[in-house]
Design a protein around this nucleic acid. Sequence first.
DNA 1: CGTTTGGTCTCATATGCTGAGAAACTATTT
DNA 2: AAATAGTTTCTCAGCATATGAGACCAAACG
Lengths: 272, 272
Amino acid sequence: MRDSLPQGTYKVQALDRAFAVLDLLGESEVPLGLAQVASSLQLHKSTAHRFLMVLERHRMVERTANGRFRLGLRLFDFGNRAIEQYDLRERAQPHLRRLVSETEETAHLCILEQARVIYIDKIEPARSVRMITRIGSSNPVHCTSVGKAMLAFLPEDRINDIIRRTRFERFTHRTIGTAEALRAEIEKTRRRGYAVDDEELEEGLRCIAVPLLDAQRQPVAAVSVSGPSFRVTAQKLPSIANHLLQCVRGISMDMGFTAAARTNRAAAAWSA
Amino acid sequence: MRDSLPQGTYKVQALDRAFAVLDLLGESEVPLGLAQVASSLQLHKSTAHRFLMVLERHRMVERTANGRFRLGLRLFDFGNRAIEQYDLRERAQPHLRRLVSETEETAHLCILEQARVIYIDKIEPARSVRMITRIGSSNPVHCTSVGKAMLAFLPEDRINDIIRRTRFERFTHRTIGTAEALRAEIEKTRRRGYAVDDEELEEGLRCIAVPLLDAQRQPVAAVSVSGPSFRVTAQKLPSIANHLLQCVRGISMDMGFTAAARTNRAAAAWSA
DNA sequence: CGTTTGGTCTCATATGCTGAGAAACTATTT
DNA sequence: AAATAGTTTCTCAGCATATGAGACCAAACG
C-alpha cells in the first residue's frame, strides 16, 4: 500500500521525517497524540514534538480540542492548487455528471502518473451504495479498468515501461497476475474499444472505462463507470460503454482536442 | 497576502524552506525552473536542487516535460485526506447544488479556522461570470458574509478573541475598518438572521450568508450566495436568505444536528 | 494520594545539512 | 559547428543545525 522507499541519492532527513508524520496522520482514521506519533515513527518524543509544532505553524497539521494532531487545511489549499493545473477536471465535471445520471452508477476521472492511476474526480449517483475510493488516491494499472484503458492506447515503449514497473499485486482471485495476461487484456481492450475490470480490484465490483485522447491521440486520462456486479451486468456493458464514449467525446470537444488547433500554451513568465 | 512569519520558538530550517518552495510553486501560475526557485527564495542552487529532488521523490512536486517544477499530486491526495474529516462537505453538496439552481448564483461553504474563513466548497451556476475564489483559500472574517455570519453566533469570548486577532485590512472603500463597526455589523446580523457583504471584499460583489449551527447551537460552518451587485439586489436579499435558511436546515438534518440521534457512520466498504 | 502516562522545554553534542565550486548538460548565438 | 551562456547535477569539507537525553509539568488513573 505504502511506497515509502526512503532510498534515493538525495536526502534531507528532516523532510522525510516530516512527510512520514503527515503520512501517518493521513493514514489514521483518528487524530493521534504526540506519543503515538513518536513511537510509530521511532522518533524521540522531543523530535516529534518539534516537528509537529513546526507543521502546525504551517497549518499542515492542526490540533483537536483534546490536543491530538491531524492533517491541517493548508494541505487542502495546496491540493487544490496542485490540481488546478489540470483544468481537465473542471471541464470534465458536467459531462461526468451527465454520465452518472444516465447510468445511475459511480463515475471516476483518472490520470496516469508514473505507473499508477490517480483518481482525479468522482461523481456518485444520488442514492446508491457508496464506493470507498478516495479522490486523490491511486491504484496500480493492472487491476483497474481506467489503467487498462489508458495502457491500451499508449505507445508500445511506454506500455513496456509501465508493465516493467508493475508488481502485479493481487487483490482478488481474478486480479491479473502476469505481464502476459495483462498484454492479452490490453489487446482485448483495443479491439473492444473499452476496458473492463471484472472484480479484479475488489470482490463484487465491476468497472468499465474508456480513455480520453488528446489532439495527438495520446491518452491523457480515462473515465470509468463502476458499480456492484449484480447491477453492472455483462449484457449492460455495451450500453454503458456507449454512454462512456459519448461522455469522453464531449470532454474532448470541450478541451479542444478534436479540433487540431491546440494552442501552444505560453510557458512564458520567466522564460525569455 | 502571504502569512509567512518564520518566527516561532520551534524551528526546523529544512521544513520552513521546503514549505517555502511549495508555496512559491503554488503561487506561480507556471512551472518554475531550478534557478528561478533558488533565486526567488535566496537559496543556493545546490540546496534548492536537493530540496526539489526530495520533494519530487515524495511526489510533492513534479517535473514538466521541459524540466520545470510544479506542485505534485501527492498534495492533492493529502488535501483530500485532510478535508475528509469534515464530512460536512460531502453531506452539504446536494443541498448547495439545490441552492445554486434556485438562486442561479455561486454558493460557498466555509468553515472558521483560527481567525480566518476557509472556503471548503464552491458550486457555480451553469452559466455565469466566474468568481475567482479558489477552494481551500482563506479570507479574514471582517470582510466576508460567511465570516460575519459565524461571528454573530459565536460566544462572546470567541468573538473578542477573533476580533482582537483581526487586522482589518481594507479591500474596498466599503470594507469594515474598525472593531466597533464590526461589532455593530454583528449585532445587525443577529437581528436580521443573515449576514451581508456589500462590496466589502471586492468591488461589485455582493454576498449573503447564514451560519450552520451544530447540535449545541455553535456555528461550525456557513453557507453563502454571491453574485454581482446588479443581480443580487437589495430587494432580493430576503428571498435569497430564505433559500439559504432552507439549505442550511437541510444540511443540519443530514448531519444529524437537529435530531439528537447522530448515527455512528459505518465506514464499511459497500456498507448496506 | 502516589503512580503512570503524555506533553513541553533546555541544552550540549555530533549529525546531517549547507553551499563553494567543478562538471556535465542544453539551449542559443555566431 | 564551434563557441557561449545558461541550467542542472554532483561532490565534499566544515560547521551550522537538528537531535535526543533528560528534567519538569500536568492530567489521568488506580
